[in-house]
Amino acid sequence: MIGKLVAQDVLKIKRKGIWFLTFLGPFGVVALQMVNYGVRKAYLLQQSDDDWAYYISNVSAFSPFALILGIAILTSFMASIENETNGWKQLTALPVSKMAIYLSKFTVLVMLLFLSSILLALFSLSYGVFLNLGDEIPYLELLKYSIYPFLASLPVLALQLWVATVSKNQGIPITVGVFGVILSYSAYVLPDWMIWKWPSLLNQWNEPMINVLFGLTFGAILYVIGMVDFMRRDVK
């Protein structure tokens, strides 16, 4: 049943520019580095001995809040597809549980964001190779800095999906998203408990894995809270 719902949701996001955004996000992050390195490559290469590591750190300076923004945009898009067509009414009249409806939306979003993360790894790799940063390509690091932020951002995804699905006015989730971006931009001054800090993989123990584990745990918790609230409410 959930498979059919997911298939339906994938169908619904056609021609809405969602696939394009999924591609644009990681591309944009790498494109910023193209501009960065394009303008002052010599200077940037001087900055460290390990050019690959320095390059990855440059890329991942932007990826966390590109991710947060992407989440805000995609969740709001998903919700407005239903809002604009009175789709919630139609969906809930189908012989499926509201739980499955919510799970399906979440699944599609996770798929899209995961795809984005993989694309980010691919794009970073390609541009890194193009820059000729050295023969020892740190594949693992590249993958790690693409996938970890995504996993650490799951609580933000769960929160945004919750807000987007229960708000009639999509200005609310978007505004929440704006604040999320600002918070994640100031990640280095944020306390460790703030979910918007997690995608930056920073914490006082210097152990990115902690953020990933927190992300998975609190992502699940927030997901359940959002889902329960969604099920409890009347359909708009």
Binding site: G17, L21, L24, G28, L32, F62, F65, A66, L69, A72, I73, L74, S76, F77, S80, E84, Q170, G171, P173, I174, G177
Partner: peptide, 15 residues
Amino acid sequence: KSFAAPFAVNVCFTL
């Protein structure tokens, strides 16, 4: 009509 689309454009230019 949607909020997300203009916001996405805005983000693309702001970042």
